[in-house]
Amino acid sequence: MTTLFWLFGVLAIVGALGVLFQTHPVRGALFLLLNFLAIGVLYLLARAPFVGFVQILVYAGAIVVLFLVAIMVMDLRRLESDFDLGLMGFLTFVLGVAFFVIVALVLLKNQIPEVSPPPTGTPEALGEWLFGQYLVPFELASILLLVAIVGAIVLIRRRRQDVS
């Protein structure tokens, strides 16, 4: 269990660093896919089977494909000056490391104990929560998806004078 956690944790970090430093869009999308798959396996290891499979279906199956289709449709190339190599780029790294160190120190001071046995997120258990106590957020999520569909169509639509 521990070995698998570190193996897929390192894979997730490699995928994230690939997205951070890769300049070719297709290779970046494939590193993103590696990260999503590794995180899906980590969900499975943490007794969250339903969320793990939904992660692989939706993130790795739909969102990465959406990125790849966008790259294909628009014929994106790499930018010459993709990285912000100035004072601002340097300060970005300083800010990131400081954020990580501060939050990690707080976390290490306040360790969360593991309950035994930890709860398992089966579809039955999650469905009871989702259609019981959390029914209103569930319905609001469907409204959010509807708004996103309408918004995407309005954004992509060409105006009539642009076509001619």
Partner: peptide, 8 residues
């Protein structure tokens, strides 16, 4: 914060 490409 570091990248300029909107895709990334």
């Amino acid at each position: 914060l570091f990248r300029r490409n909107l895709m990334f």
